[in-house]
């Protein structure tokens, strides 16, 4: 308690309190917010746009402008489409903690229903990539795996690594790991090209191929066994070298110490 009171006058105290309050509000909101109900019918669409606009005004407009026209802190959202919103908000990247070139993935604070409403609103600003349906990103053909793998190595592995582990870009930016990313979000990322990722629109990478890539990524990051043992992060020779030094040579030297050591003398035991 004494510690706490001593820090009360700290210049950052107000900020901490504010952040705590915000987090609490957000948490309560998330907990009590209405769960997503089926709002599939067409009449509900305009309602969704209205709801989305309200949510947008609260959560997004400070950077993207009240009507998504963009500002110095955030790009225009006219024409980015619902897929972009579903990806950015669904993966927790938006709302961003701070504007910047690299907005990291974090826990998502909106329910899927709210994301859909936001997406409906942004989609109404101008035509753009549409949130895919489950059939679009769920592969049923077993051949898709190898085709997806080849496409992945042509289009994706240069940044995300052969096993989808991610990699470095310039100036501290990075291509994130694809581990644990929803199939839908992988699909949407290819459609929309979030942040520094280029887009792979249907005109140059047809839907079918995106589905194949999704199948490969999900397989590689989720279901693929590692027959040889520990993957060591699937990062190639660097971690293998480290493991070889520490556990290979390290263990051998430990054994060598035992082999060469003098046996305990009787007097000392």
């Amino acid at each position: 308690m004494k510690k706490l009171s001593a820090r009360r006058r700290h210049p950052l105290a107000a900020l901490v309190v504010l952040l705590l309050a915000l987090a609490a509000t957000g948490g309560l909101y998330a907990a009590f917010a209405p769960a997503g109900k089926a709002q599939a019918d067409v009449a509900a669409q305009s309602l969704a746009i209205d709801e989305g606009k309200k949510l947008f005004a609260v959560g997004c407009s400070s950077c993207h402008g009240l009507n998504g026209e963009g500002s110095s802190d955030g790009p225009s959202l006219v024409g980015v489409g619902s897929a972009a919103v579903d990806f950015q908000v669904g993966t927790g990247r938006m709302p961003a903690q701070q504007p910047g070139a690299q907005v990291p993935r974090k826990p998502n604070i909106y329910s899927q229903a709210e994301i859909d409403q936001l997406a409906a609103f942004v989609a109404s600003l101008g035509p753009g990539p549409v949130t895919p349906t489950e059939e679009q990103y769920t592969s049923t053909n077993p051949d898709d795996l190898s085709k997806g793998g080849e496409l992945f190595r042509t289009n994706c592995a240069q940044c995300h690594n052969f096993a989808g582990q991610g990699g470095a870009l310039t100036q501290g930016k990075y291509a994130p790991s694809l581990e644990g990313v929803d199939a839908k979000h992988i699909y949407e990322a290819m459609q929309t090209g979030p942040q520094n990722m280029p887009s792979f629109p249907d005109s140059t990478m047809p839907e079918e191929q995106k589905k194949q890539i999704v199948a490969f990524v999900r397989h590689t990051t989720n279901d693929e066994p590692n027959p040889g043992g520990l993957t060591l992060g699937s990062l190639g020779p660097v971690t293998e070298g480290l493991f070889g030094w520490i556990f290979g040579l390290g263990a051998l030297i430990a054994v060598a110490i035992w082999v060469a050591a003098h046996t305990t003398k009787a007097k000392k035991s």
């Binding site: 496409l151 090209g193 280029p198 887009s199 629109p201 005109s203 140059t204 990478m205 047809p206 191929q209």
Partner: peptide, 21 residues
Amino acid sequence: INMNTNQPMKAEDIITGSLTF
């Protein structure tokens, strides 16, 4: 020829911000 589709491409297929081989 687009490496993905093995088809020729039109200018409008290549949108700003996209990457194609």
